[in-house]
Amino acid sequence: MSRSYGQYCGLARALDVVGDRWNLLIVRQLLIAPARYRELLDGLPGVATNLLADRLRDLETAGVVERRLADEGNAIVYALTLWGAELREPVDGLIRWSTPLMARGPGGDRFRADWLVLALSALLADKAAARRSSTVGIAVDGRLLQVRVTRSGVDVSPHDGRDLDAVVRADASIVLGLAAGALTLDDTLELVDIEGDEAAVRALFNPQRANVGDSVRR
Rank of each mutant, 00 (worst) to 15 (best):
R151L: 14
R151F: 13
R151I: 09
G137I: 00
G153L: 10
V140G: 00
A139F: 01
V147T: 09
A129E: 13
G137L: 01
L123M: 13
D141G: 11
V136T: 11
V147I: 11
G137M: 00
R151H: 13
S152M: 15
A139K: 01
S133M: 13
L124I: 06
S152E: 15
S134L: 02
L145T: 02
D126I: 05
V156E: 03
I138F: 00
S133G: 05
V156T: 09
T135I: 10
A128T: 11
R143I: 03
D126M: 14
A130P: 03
V140N: 00
A125N: 06
R148L: 10
L145E: 03
A128L: 05
L123D: 07
R143Y: 03
R132A: 08
D155I: 11
K127M: 15
V149R: 15
D126W: 06
V147L: 05
Q146W: 10
S134N: 05
A122S: 13
L124Q: 06
V154L: 11
L145G: 01
R131T: 12
R148F: 10
D141H: 04
V149T: 12
I138R: 01
A129F: 10
L123Q: 09
S152W: 06
I138T: 01
L123C: 04
G137T: 00
V136I: 09
R143S: 13
K127C: 09
R143A: 08
K127H: 11
L123T: 05
L144R: 02
A130M: 08
R148S: 12
S152H: 13
G142E: 07
Q146M: 14
